Amino acid sequence: MSCQCAEDRLVLVAVPEAVRRARGFVVTRLRSWGAMGVLDDTLLVASELVTNAARAAGLVALQLRIAGPSLYVEVWDDVPGVPEVRHLVADAEGGRGLLLVEALTTRWGVCRPRAGGKVVWAELPLPADALPPAPEAAAEELADAVLLERVLDALRGW
């Protein structure tokens, strides 16, 4: 990988093809960052988070960010409700998205930015062979909440 830190975002209108566009964005970015080792898990996590947001909101933003040894998938929408992991019966036809996110990530959570809505984020570890050179201490200490605010700053500019 040629960079220590990287980030990019995509703003989507919540229409049926939003998830397909989000998946294309993930492939393009991970390829350009040399992080294809986490492609499959990142595609699934991003698809689940964007699907949930698109079902409830009018506008959705997806941000991918590499900081240190982790890739962050961050999805903003303008709905204040917090997603919850559901405990389902075996024959349920849906509702397993956050269970998959939980299983594939190091951690995930929800941030409520001052501008409104919410950001659902997930952290995926980068494989050792895809890790950038040791990042500066400042990059390692970046707070999740501060970085998530960048998503909203970008949205304010639209």
Score class of each variant (00 low, 15 high):
Arg96Cys: 08
Asp77Ser: 00
Arg21Leu: 11
Ser70Ala: 11
Val119Asp: 00
Gly81Glu: 14
Leu62Gln: 01
Ala61Tyr: 10
Ala53Arg: 02
Ala115Gly: 11
Leu88Met: 05
Thr51Tyr: 03
Gly81Ala: 15
Arg114Cys: 08
Val50Asp: 00
Leu43Lys: 07
Leu30Glu: 01
Pro127Ser: 03
Glu149Trp: 08
Trp121Pro: 09
Leu71Arg: 07
Val75Cys: 05
Cys111Thr: 14
Arg65Tyr: 03
Ala57Asn: 05
Gly117Ser: 04
Arg9Ser: 15
Leu100Tyr: 12
Val50Tyr: 01
Leu98Asn: 07
Leu39Asn: 07
Glu141Phe: 09
Arg31Val: 02
Ala61Asp: 03
Glu140Arg: 14
Gln63Ile: 06
Val11Asn: 00
Ala122Glu: 01
Asp40Ser: 15
Ala130Tyr: 09
Ile66Cys: 13
Val89Ile: 08
Ala92Phe: 05
Asp78Gly: 04
Val75Ile: 04
Ser47Leu: 03
Ser2Leu: 09
Leu39Tyr: 01
Ser2Cys: 07
Thr42Met: 09
Ala130His: 15
Val85Ile: 15
Tyr72Ile: 02
Arg9Thr: 14
Val119Gln: 01
Leu152Ser: 13
Ala22Pro: 06
Asp129Arg: 13
Ala122Gln: 05
Pro16Tyr: 07
Leu155Met: 11
Asn52Ile: 03
Leu124Tyr: 07
Glu149Arg: 15
Arg20Thr: 07
Val73Pro: 02
Gly81Trp: 10
Val73Tyr: 01
Leu88Arg: 13
Gly37Asp: 11
Ala92Met: 12
Ala134Cys: 05
Phe25Gly: 00
Ala46Arg: 01
Pro135Ser: 05
Thr105Phe: 07
Val119Cys: 00
Met36Trp: 10
Leu12Ala: 00
Ala145Lys: 04
Trp33Glu: 05
Trp158His: 14
Leu43Glu: 09
Asp8Ser: 15
Trp121Leu: 03
Leu155Ala: 02
Val101Glu: 00
Leu147Tyr: 10
Cys3Gln: 13
His87Arg: 14
Gly94Phe: 00
Val73Asp: 00
Asp77Ala: 02
Trp121Gln: 03
Ser70Tyr: 12
His87Phe: 05
Arg112Pro: 07
Arg96Val: 12
Ile66Pro: 05
Glu17Asp: 15
Gly97Phe: 00
Thr106Asp: 14
Val82Ile: 02
Leu100Met: 08
Glu74Val: 06
